[in-house]
């Protein structure tokens, strides 16, 4: 018995090591989980990218769920995400709103002209101040906000068809079940 103890300990460590590898292939260790899930989205007032004289506020968007997609023209991963939004953005069942993060307006407009514009509207946060309230720490990030203005789901990193099928669609379906 006592002779097999070191072997047992070794196997335990091997199992722990294997679990660590397995876990890290499925999770991004750098991902910071948002404490804002199921909490009211921060109040915000942001100008429209196309017409800075007009602003969009959280209060103005209440009543219908929407997906707030943080992007920027300087963000490489946003370019990878963009075709998915172009293809599936209109079939999500919620309004897709672009959130242009720390970007020069002209760069963003050119980028959208070049890659296509999947958004119903685009708000611009050039100083990035509102983004701090949302806990944004990079782009792309996406927030699903329900009709009452509560953040129900957040995705960090590019949205892929797989993310839409496995996470976003079920989350949106849950919203629609609540308020048809």
């Amino acid at each position: 018995m006592s002779r097999s103890l070191p072997l047992f300990g070794f196997l335990l460590l091997v199992a722990l090591f294997g679990f660590g590898i397995w876990w890290n292939t499925r999770h991004d260790p750098n991902e910071v989980p948002s404490p804002l899930i199921n909490k009211p989205a921060p109040a915000f007032v942001l100008p429209l990218l196309d017409d800075p004289a007009q602003t969009v506020s959280k209060a103005g968007l209440l009543g219908k769920p929407y997906l707030l997609n943080v992007f920027a023209s300087w963000c490489f991963a946003c370019g990878e995400e963009h075709p998915t939004l172009m293809a599936e953005g209109s079939q999500l069942g919620v309004m897709l709103i672009g959130y242009d993060y720390k970007d020069a307006p002209d760069d963003a407009k050119n980028w959208l002209r070049e890659h296509g514009n999947p958004y119903r509207m685009v708000v611009a946060d050039r100083p990035g101040r509102t983004a701090i309230d949302f806990g944004v720490y990079g782009a792309p990030e996406s927030f699903l906000i329900d009709a009452k203005g509560v953040i129900r789901y957040k995705h960090i990193g590019p949205i892929t068809p797989e993310v839409i099928a496995k996470e976003l669609k079920p989350a949106i379906a849950a919203l629609q079940k609540e308020s048809p």
Partner: peptide, 16 residues
Amino acid sequence: MFFGSSAPCARFSLAT
């Protein structure tokens, strides 16, 4: 996963 654990800052790299 996507950004790679070795270079988390790449997400913020400026376009050149």
